[in-house]
Design a protein around this nucleic acid. Structure first.
Lengths: 228, 228
DNA sequence: ACCTGAACACCGTTCAAGT
DNA sequence: ACCTGAACACCGTTCAAGT
């Protein structure tokens, strides 16, 4: 097959490691990822991984960034730069979908963008789009942050235990309003979905209400209208 | 001191263990808590802890619940049950303050209430207050969930690395709008504070806009006006 | 350059043994 | 009832050695 004699192919690559790690995290959770286990999955011995990543954290960062890379950003380069509300909505939905598809990765992602390129692209895109839509830069920064709070918070709360599926855990004397809380466990997804939609709508409605005054203030304030 | 002879006092108690664990988490982070290290801090050998807790996770749950117990809930039993907006606002601020005081605990707390009594009391209080204020139960559940998303998301993003404090990490060619992103690291708290306030206001404004129609719908819907 | 085995300094948890 | 030491089955990471 090979034309030229080549020093035998490396067994590992960053891509292969990240792929195996992602599969392992999705299937069995973060705790299942040990360097030894991961190496075994790749048919290799533990320390081999250190030829490709500085440490385990870097591997998990790469896994998390692969999830960030799935977030759709196309709505931000639409021609109509003033419909920031729709763009923000569609982005939030796409973001959350990416997270809920890989719930075990969310705790890593929630730490913030750090040095992960895909996460930075996301932050860059939303900030740029808000500024283009007329939001003052300081507000655009806040919007990027608060949307991330809500979306990752939703994906994190959604994934984890939430309420326990056990009636005896919720004594009506202690928690008079949680009579059916154990039922929540069954309807988790439905409730999370609903809470996300309700919250997202409220957030966007509230921001829209602030928009006019924010734009006005930035016009009368420091004349920062450096065109692109 | 003791009147009666007593079989010598136990060295450990759940309270003492939780106290030492909390101090350790606050000072050095979650990773610093190992059963051996914690036991050493208490002047005792590792396995002793298992006489008081079933496993390490139960210890961390107790640490997290001690934080939940600090959340102020008094605004929910104010006489004016219809000012849900102010109550929700003050609660959110108190909740976030409790979390930012113990940032390392947030990942544990974000998993959801589970069986932790203080966390359940929080969920119970906000749900009950929203129902009393006239929100239909299904909406009250959603409000509790979405507020938790936003608050824990905010505390989580706030704590962790966020953006890195290193100019070279953000090449302007790759991220045209993040030119000063490395400056964010310095101003983290300021930005997180501002994003939280902006987001909270937007959320409450948006919910207020939904309130009227929600209440109307519940009145014309299934006549559920069972008095207290 | 890339992989290996051996080694170091740790883990969480169980359990028989002591008091 | 509560604490102990010893033990089991693991960890992440380093490093000299091999190819």
């Amino acid at each position: 097959m090979c034309r030229m004699a080549r020093p035998r192919k490396p067994l590992l690559s960053r891509e292969r490691i990240v792929g195996a790690a992602s599969a392992l995290v999705d299937a069995e959770g973060l705790d299942a990822v040990s360097t030894r286990r991961l190496a075994a999955e790749l048919g290799v011995s533990g320390p081999s991984l250190y030829n490709h990543f500085r440490n385990k954290d870097e591997i998990l960062d790469a896994v998390a960034d692969a999830v960030s890379a799935k977030v759709d950003l196309s709505m931000f380069d639409a021609s109509d730069s003033r419909d920031w509300r729709t763009a923000l909505h569609d982005w939030a939905v796409s973001y959350r979908a990416a997270l809920t598809e890989h719930p075990h990765v969310v705790p890593v992602l929630a730490r913030g963008p750090g040095r992960r390129p895909a996460a930075l692209r996301v932050a860059d895109a939303v900030f740029g789009a808000m500024v283009r839509a007329g939001w003052p830069p300081a507000q655009a920064t806040r919007i990027g942050a608060l949307m991330r709070y809500f979306i990752t918070g939703s994906a994190l709360g959604s994934f984890a235990r939430g309420f326990v599926d056990d009636e005896s855990a919720y004594d009506p004397c202690d928690y008079p309003h949680l009579g059916q809380a154990h039922l929540l466990a069954e309807r988790r997804e439905e409730i999370d979905e609903g809470a996300f939609e309700t919250g997202l709508r409220a957030l966007l409605d509230g921001l829209a209400a602030q928009y006019e005054t924010a734009v006005r203030a930035s016009r009368t304030g420091p004349s920062r209208t450096d065109g692109p």
